[in-house]
Design a protein around this nucleic acid. Structure first.
Lengths: 355, 355
DNA sequence: GCCAAGTATGAAACCGTTTACATCGGGAGC
DNA sequence: GCTCCCGATGTAAACGGTTTCATACTTGGC
């Protein structure tokens, strides 16, 4: 394939001139420029990206590392990152499905020299080493970090207050025996949501330790199994808070299979507000987080960090988690699930209806 | 940051030796190796990816270009690509949301030198130029190509036969006045599905030109509007084939808002089988395509192409589109939408129930 | 007619690796 | 004791660009 030298030779100029034409840097004689461009087209010359980033130390690429790519949530995060990156003329180098620190380290190493910054959702503490090493070279933005890292920006959802609001809502509806299906152990989001659940109970003068805690792993199947387990329990809880919507879906299926009616027999609340939540039967009351917005915000922080260089401070941002009341919790004022019914009431943290 | 030279100097060896240690290429004295490794760790040395790929002409990265990143379908494709790439130790360089040929060209140019191959779903014919130019340098695999390109592998869904099966099923249920909500003009998938729709009618001795064709664009809102338009029509079609599930969702919402019952008043069939399809009210009969599998297959083809070099032939693969009968079409044998009911009947192209 | 300023271009260093080839000891074979 | 071979390592040339600095040639002002 043609290199800059081939073009220079064919056009009878030096490679410096060709480079200048392509970066329209300094003034180049228009005649020379057009001749070079013409030759370049004829030779099908395209600058080599690796060579460019080697000299300029710029790649116009953002690294993105995610723990795993299943579930709608992560897709949305990627969408948000992608969209905002494009707006800033950046491409994204994606590497996901990392289950342990070792894999993260390898992926991080492979990215080095190819990225101007790294947006990362770390699955576990073992990844912190990678973060530290990468951070010495390019800015790092953490998503929902388990541990804040000195010198890294981060964006996180208000998991705690979102969960608390959801459970408080159930309590307000009269429920006194509320169970929770948790996320995988060690997952920050899961832990924060559990903490919010317990706080809500405590705030209402109930004993958090008395509540049924069913272990889950954020997958639909875990929700189903949890549902089966719950039904065998006596006394049976009157409401369940599933730590994410995926498990709520499985739970609803288990309840339907057992002939239980939601919310009459048992109330259900989820977390995430995935696209199908409004279309479930009954429409799912859940806590809405803007996954796409998380990615968007992460890119914004990254752009700031890249601008300001390694001296940039470590901003911490929180994104709201908003309770969306639909029908699965039995609220009298719930939306229909098919028609928009946004209410401006309840202190601004509760929405009703479809979106 | 430390370079290979720093390590070499500190360890009292040449850069060649350091390089050899890191690529455990040729025999290196174990003692020397461990000393180099130790120094490298102390200096926090990581090889620079850009420099490596400049000399080796390998990047361990696959370019991925998609027209736009909205909707579950594309997320699934990316998931499939990502998973399979990781299995082969490749990362992916993502660039999406390209709406025109110009943007595609720029993105392609930015990728050059950073990728070992390109997986691309081209939005329009204007992108063909980019494909051609990229193809001269690295292998290209096309997804659902509008036009096959000489020397490129491709993977596509059987849009045509999938749509035909869906409409034939409606006809088998007794429907004689069937409408279609189409995808955006110029979209291959949309066109193929329309073609399948017309063929099914023709096969049944009906006049394709007499059918109602409502223009859509694959978005939920278009489905809603199409629903409104359909309800105003007289005589009103007894069944509707929406060219994708997103529009079917909107259509169901419009019908519900008008108090129509599905499938009693009107039957609905979609295309894609997105995750929420089974949870809609009623569960949506649709044509299932394995978007994740599409990405997976594309990577497999790419690996073959990279192995065999530019001489590699141009394989064309078709992935099946399978009709999944649920309740929205009014079939007597439909699944419940919540319990798995896979039937092995009907020539193997029809499944029933949830998945 | 000379100097300063400005424009267009070239020469060469550099970015951080890999790798072909050269070099250098030392032990084996005879 | 002389080759020959081999293992360990160094030298230096790529890879394909960008960029600093130098140079040659025009102009314009006085």
């Amino acid at each position: 394939m043609a290199t800059i030298r081939d073009v220079a030779r064919a056009a009878g100029v030096s490679i410096a001139t060709v480079s200048r034409v392509f970066n329209d840097h300094t003034l180049v004689n228009p005649e020379t420029a057009s001749r070079v461009l013409e030759i370049a087209t004829k030779l099908d010359y395209w600058p080599n990206g690796a060579a460019q980033s080697l000299t300029t130390r710029r790649t116009q690429t953002l690294g993105v590392m995610l723990p795993e790519l299943f579930g709608e949530f992560y897709s949305e995060v990627i969408r948000g990152i992608d969209r905002q990156s494009r707006a800033h003329d950046y491409q994204i180098l994606l590497s996901s499905s990392h289950s342990n620190g070792e894999e993260v380290l390898i992926a991080g190493r492979a990215m080095l020299g190819r990225i101007d910054g790294l947006i990362m959702m770390a699955p576990d503490e073992a990844s912190i080493e990678t973060v530290e090493r990468v951070r010495r070279r390019v800015p790092v933005v953490l998503l929902n970090p388990r541990i804040e890292v000195e010198g890294c920006c981060s964006v996180a959802f208000e998991n705690f207050s979102g969960a608390r609001a959801a459970v408080t809502h159930l309590i307000g509806l009269g429920h006194r025996d509320i169970a929770i299906i948790t996320g995988p152990p060690g997952n920050v989001d899961a832990e924060e949501r559990l903490r919010g659940f317990r706080r809500a109970l405590a705030d209402a003068g109930m004993d958090p330790d008395a509540a049924a805690v069913i272990p889950g792993d954020f997958r639909e199947s875990a929700g189903y199994e949890a549902g089966v387990a719950l039904l065998a329990r006596k006394p049976r809880p009157t409401a369940v808070f599933a730590a994410n919507d995926g498990m709520a879906v499985g739970l609803l299926a288990a309840l339907a299979a057992a002939g239980k009616r939601v919310p009459r027999d048992i109330a259900v609340v989820g977390f995430d507000d995935i696209a199908m939540a409004a279309y479930l039967n009954p429409p799912l009351t859940t806590v809405s987080v803007d996954a796409c917005g998380l990615g968007h915000r992460a890119v914004d922080l990254m752009m700031g960090a890249i601008e300001s260089g390694p001296t940039g401070g470590s901003l911490r941002q929180q994104l709201p988690a908003v309770l969306v009341v639909r029908q699965s919790c039995g609220s009298a004022t719930a939306g229909t699930g098919l028609l928009e019914q946004t209410a401006g009431s309840s202190g601004g943290t509760v929405r009703r209806g479809r979106k």
